[in-house]
Amino acid sequence: MAEKPVRVLVGKVGLDGHDRGAKVVAQALRDAGMEVIYTGLRQTPEQIVETALQEDVQVIGLSILSGAHMQLLPPVLEMLREQESHDIIVIVGGIIPKEDMVYLKENGVAEVFSPGSSTGQIVQFIKQKMEENK
């Protein structure tokens, strides 16, 4: 039996309008055989979690380049914990300074992809995580 494709939510959290990266990643994940739910712009942390649960995704990919990541990402992680959905893998793309990266990874973000990361790396990372979680 064919394996069920991985379901990924790709979202823009906050008011940031830079969606080139998010759309390129969404398209690349789809080309790699995953099912992608793309939220569009201006999602609140609450909306992200709600959509993720509704759509029953295994991975949440959040893109943020406005510098508001320390205010907008922790609520997502916290709500996932409250919903006992911490098995959902959260990955982040954007301009995230080193010390914030460390904090986010200690608090539940699986990986942060900085500018210059390839979509190949992201696909690889998700596949590997899915393998580990089997």
Partner: peptide, 11 residues
């Protein structure tokens, strides 16, 4: 505004 959370003075 609630949607301004985290964004004030950032970009």
């Amino acid at each position: 505004h609630p949607l301004a959370r985290g964004e004030v003075g950032k970009v």
